[in-house]
């Protein structure tokens, strides 16, 4: 763990730089061979042939930007959930938000219901958003109704998770092979349908949430002293927990509905940040957001390199590459205790 505040800020700035470098690297990676120089020329001097310009401006930059905003959103959401629920296993996925989005997407694919005047792609996203908000609403309502403890909160989330997972299985059971394929691809998670409006929506949601939680950074740090001590500092924990959960559920729902289920970032990135930065949420929150963006950018690069000429589903890459790294950190870290 870095002890001095200057060191923590410096490390966060380093992550920001890495993020920019990987952003450029991600744009430079792909089937059409283009060097960094060429890309810079295309972007800044309007050079390059028509096709190359379309590839860079229309595909690669949106995908890379999407990786940043989604990675940052999911990681921030995970970090917040782990703090307010005082549980290292909490993430948008483990509270059922993602699986509800999956169910929403699946029923749109299979039963084609949605708004007739919008594209199917957008209908899927809207329905995924709707269902993930419903799932969050259920968790929120049940938790606030009974003033749930953090453990009960997570168990309610798990109940919602399994409900939507079985509903999803039911839909899959009744769907045709073509639809099943569509569902599977959606569940894999993909950045390839990135467009600037979608990025703008996710980014604005991220920006608002980020500003809000940064204002409450000290309270979040105080919660990590333990529930009894946080209450003894005059924090209304139950109310605050629900308030942050509301932010998290909107943040994740918006990110997940456009890209599908990209697992694990919400768990792995905050843990690594916590390990290096400690519990000062003023720095921990931006740090884990940057780290989430970095991990998703890296995954995006790997997913393009792994199968030449095709894009391997990014959700698989994050999980497969993330898990060994994650286990390594947990198992071989003896100096600082990760969680108390």
């Amino acid at each position: 763990m870095i002890k001095s505040i200057q060191g923590k800020v410096f490390f966060t700035l380093v992550l920001f730089l890495v993020c920019i470098i990987l952003f450029v690297a991600d744009i430079a990676t792909g089937p059409a061979d283009m060097g960094v120089l060429k890309i810079l020329q295309i972007v800044f001097h309007q050079h390059g042939e028509g096709n190359e310009r379309i590839i860079v401006m229309g595909i690669r930059i949106p995908v890379a930007l999407m990786a940043i905003v989604v990675g940052a959103s999911l990681s921030l959401a995970g970090c917040l959930l782990q703090t307010i629920l005082n549980n290292p296993m909490a993430s948008p996925y483990s509270l059922g938000i993602s699986s509800a989005a999956g169910f929403g997407a699946a029923i749109t694919i299979v039963f084609s219901f949605g708004l007739s005047f919008v594209e199917k792609d957008i209908s899927i996203a809207l329905n995924a958003l709707l269902f993930s908000l419903v799932a969050s609403g259920v968790v929120y309502a049940l938790s606030s109704w009974k003033q749930a403890s953090p453990e009960a909160f997570i168990l309610i989330g798990i109940a919602v998770l399994f409900t939507f997972q079985s509903l999803l299985s039911a839909v899959e059971y009744y769907s045709s092979p073509e639809d099943l394929q569509g569902i599977t691809f959606w569940l894999f998670g993909s950045l390839s349908k990135a467009t600037y409006p979608k990025i703008a929506i996710i980014f604005s949601m991220f920006f608002v949430s980020f500003c809000f939680v940064m204002r409450n950074a000290w309270v979040l740090t105080a919660i990590r002293l333990g529930e009894a001590r946080a209450e003894a500092l005059g924090i209304n924990l139950k109310y605050f927990r629900l308030k942050i959960f509301l932010v998290v559920s909107i943040l994740t729902s918006v990110a997940v509905c456009f890209v599908g289920i990209i697992g694990f970032i919400g768990i792995i990135a905050p843990h690594i940040s916590r390990l290096i930065i400690g519990e000062d949420h003023r720095i921990l929150l931006p740090n884990s957001a940057f780290l989430g963006a970095i991990i998703l950018l890296l995954s995006s690069i790997v997913s393009k390199v792994i199968l030449p000429g095709a894009v391997f589903p990014i959700g698989i890459v994050t999980a497969v590459a993330g898990i060994p790294m994650f286990l390594f950190i947990i198992l071989f870290n003896r100096k600082t205790r990760l969680w108390h």
């Binding site: 000290w218 333990g226 003894a232 005059g234 108390h340």
Partner: peptide, 29 residues
Amino acid sequence: SYIPQSAQAVSNISVFDVVLLGDVFSLRF
């Protein structure tokens, strides 16, 4: 000010920050 029982569940927050948190609602960024 209220100090609850037992010193359990304390994380790796620095002593200085823990003391600052005593006045958590007056703390700015």
